[in-house]
Amino acid sequence: NITNLCPFDEVFNATRFASVYAWNRKRISNCVADYSVLYNFAPFFAFKCYGVSPTKLNDLCFTNVYADSFVIRGNEVSQIAPGQTGNIADYNYKLPDDFTGCVIAWNSNKLDSKVGGNYNYLYRLFRKSNLKPFERDISTEIYQAGNKPCNGVAGFNCYFPLRSYGFRPTYGVGHQPYRVVVLSFELLHAPATVCGPKKST
C-alpha cells in the first residue's frame, strides 16, 4: 500500500531547467500520482495528452512514469508532439509516433530571460542525422557541412553544433522561453508502482 505522493513538484518547480539538447529525465516510481494538482495549476500554456485522457489519469496505474524537462522557445512547443519535424524534434528531443503521455508547457519569461540576454539555454542546430525517439545527444563535436574534414576547428563550413537562445524579456511570445515537462507513461508486464489516488488503496 503506497502512500507517499509522487515528487512532481520537484520537477515542475525546479529552480533551473535543462537546455533542450541535454534534456533532463527523472524516473518516478513507487508513489501516488495526483495529476489533478498539475491539471489545476493555472499558468499552463499547453497540457496535451496522447493515448490517454488527462482527466482519467487519476484512475490509472503505470509501471513507471518518466518526467523529461527542458526549455525551448514558445514557437517550438508545437514540435513536442508525435510525428513532428523541425530543429527541436529532429536534433534535440524526439517523441515516438506511438507516444503515451502528456506534454505540459508554460511561459517562463520572468524566470529564464535576462536584460542583455540569458545565454545559458542551448539547443542543437546541426546534426548529421535525426534523433531516434528519446535519444539524447550531448556531443559538442564540430559539425562538418562541406567535404573538408574540420579536425575539431570551427570555421568555413565547420560549425559548433550548439546555439544559444539568448532570451531577453522584451522578445515577442514566440521567442520567449517556455518550460516543458513531458510525462511518459510506461506500461510493462510488471507490477504497477505509480497509481492515481483512487487506485492506491
Results as ranks from 00 to 15, higher is better:
T3P: 08
N4Q: 14
P7W: 05
P7K: 12
P7A: 10
V11I: 15
F12D: 02
N13E: 04
A18Q: 08
S19L: 01
V20W: 04
Y21M: 05
Y21E: 04
W23Y: 07
N24A: 09
R25Q: 02
K26L: 07
K26R: 13
R27C: 08
I28N: 03
I28K: 01
S29H: 13
N30P: 06
N30M: 02
A33N: 05
F41E: 07
A42D: 06
P43D: 10
F44I: 09
K48M: 05
C49T: 00
V52T: 08
V52D: 03
P54W: 15
T55E: 15
T55K: 13
K56S: 12
L57E: 05
D59W: 05
C61Q: 14
F62S: 07
Y66I: 11
Y66L: 08
A67E: 01
D68P: 00
F70M: 03
V71M: 03
V71I: 09
I72Y: 01
R73F: 05
G74T: 01
N75V: 08
N75E: 13
N75Q: 10
Q79L: 02
A81M: 04
P82H: 01
P82T: 02
P82E: 01
G83D: 05
Q84C: 06
I88Q: 03
D90N: 11
Y91E: 03
N92A: 02
L95P: 02
D97M: 10
D97H: 10
T100D: 01
V103Y: 00
A105W: 09
A105T: 08
W106S: 00
N107V: 04
N107R: 06
S108H: 03
S108I: 04
L111R: 10
D112I: 00
K114V: 12
K114N: 13
N118K: 08
N118H: 08
N120P: 11
L122D: 11
Y123D: 05
L125I: 14
R127G: 06
R127L: 03
S129F: 08
L131D: 03
P133Q: 04
F134D: 07
F134N: 09
F134T: 06
D137E: 04
I138Y: 08
S139F: 03
T140R: 12
I142Y: 11
I142W: 09
Y143L: 11
Q144G: 09
G146F: 06
N147G: 13
K148G: 11
P149V: 11
G152I: 06
G152D: 13
G152S: 11
V153P: 09
V153F: 11
A154P: 14
F156Q: 15
N157M: 10
C158S: 06
F160A: 15
L162V: 08
L162W: 02
L162T: 05
L162E: 04
R163V: 12
Y165C: 02
G166Y: 08
P169R: 08
G172Y: 09
G174R: 11
H175E: 15
Q176T: 03
Y178C: 11
Y178E: 02
R179G: 02
V181E: 01
V181M: 03
L183H: 00
S184A: 08
S184E: 04
S184R: 08
F185T: 01
F185A: 02
E186S: 11
H189Q: 13
A190G: 15
A190M: 11
A190R: 12
T193E: 12
V194L: 10
C195E: 12
K198W: 11
K199N: 14
S200F: 12
T201V: 14
